[in-house]
């Protein structure tokens, strides 16, 4: 569970990530978002497609140069890493697990070479025997066995492939893992296996996760804190339980009201809350405001009282 006093491992400050800057088709995929992730926690990022979740994850792993703002990982600004060594170290510290276990593994490479790619690049193995031993251990860690090392991705099911993807991410001993929809392509029964594996690994290896997903029940289950994104903006941040018990922003409320629940009685009484996004572009200045301890909402000055009342009602 989250240690509230744990140091911040990641600080995202006023991050802006625009595409086609200055052109007619400029896209503000991420527009001035700020949040922190503490060591050892799971920070969930939810929102609909196009809300900027994935772009945020990619910006954090420094696949883009930010249009504005800073991304600070372990005290260092990732855009200002000076030496090759710093850059390499950073790339090992942050790893990504991708959504599609079919597209994210090279079909022409053996499993052991897929997993060991990071080991090779970073010279983490003394010799071939050490490399094989590390791969074996990783396979075991993710619930596969060493006989799988010499096979190709097509010989595996979706769940097993996702385990290979996780083993690859772990190979370079990362501190921070960005899991971008890691289970959406998997069957229900397999999803639970992979989520349990991720939780288990987090405990054993003291990992920090940024968990990006649109399945709100799963995000709540795995996350300590959750950020809700919409149109490139962060609308609300709170502890997972708090967010679901007391959603403050209208968009969060709308999102939660739409989550299908495996309970027919509940479903018969469901009422969907509509969200009118036009309020977001009414010209008012808004920023994240801490309405209650650790519960932030994007609000204009004259809306703060309304949110406080909402929390107490």
């Amino acid at each position: 569970m989250l240690d509230k006093d744990a140091p911040k491992i990641l600080e995202v400050k006023n991050l802006k990530q625009y595409f086609n800057v200055g052109r007619k088709d400029e896209v503000r995929a991420v527009d001035d978002i700020t949040f922190n992730v503490h060591e050892g926690e799971t920070f969930g990022l939810v929102g609909e497609s196009g809300s900027g979740k994935t772009t945020t994850g990619r910006a954090i792993s420094h696949l883009y140069e930010p249009t504005g703002g800073e991304i600070i990982f372990e005290g260092k600004d990732v855009s200002k890493l000076k030496t090759k060594k710093d850059e390499k170290e950073f790339r090992s510290d942050i790893q990504t697990i991708f959504q599609d276990p079919y597209a994210s593994l090279n079909p022409r490479m053996k499993v052991k070479d897929i997993i060991a790619e990071g080991i090779d690049i970073n010279n983490l193995a003394k010799d071939k025997a050490d490399r094989d031993a590390q791969v074996e251990e990783l396979l075991e860690t993710v619930g596969l066995n060493k006989e799988h090392a010499n096979r190709y991705p097509h010989e595996f099911s979706g769940g097993q492939r996702q385990r290979i993807g996780i083993a690859r991410a772990l190979a370079v001993k990362p501190k921070f893992i960005i899991a971008d929809e890691p289970i959406s392509a998997l069957d229900v029964s397999i999803q639970a296996q992979v989520v349990n594996l991720l939780k288990d690994l987090q405990k054993k290896r003291k990992l920090t996760y940024l968990f990006i997903a649109h399945d709100l029940s799963m995000v709540k289950y795995i996350s300590d804190r959750i950020g809700v994104m919409h149109y490139g903006r962060m609308l609300e941040i709170a502890d997972a339980d708090e967010l679901y018990a007391h959603p403050l922003h209208d968009y969060t409320r709308s999102l939660l009201s739409a989550v299908p629940v495996p309970d027919p009685e509940f479903e018969r009484q469901r009422e969907i809350v509509d969200y009118d996004a036009s309020v977001e572009s009414d010209g008012k200045q808004r920023k994240l405001v801490e309405i209650a301890p650790n519960h932030y909402v994007r609000a204009a000055d004259d809306e703060i009282q309304m949110y406080k009342d909402r929390l107490n009602s």
């Binding site: 639970a192 989550v259 495996p262 309970d263």
Partner: peptide
């Protein structure tokens, strides 16, 4: 294996194997 919004067990019940 499908968590509801009330699930807070430490380990999600899952179906082993494939």
């Amino acid at each position: 294996s499908m968590p509801t919004l009330d699930t807070n067990e430490d380990v999600l019940p899952s179906i082993p194997g494939t």
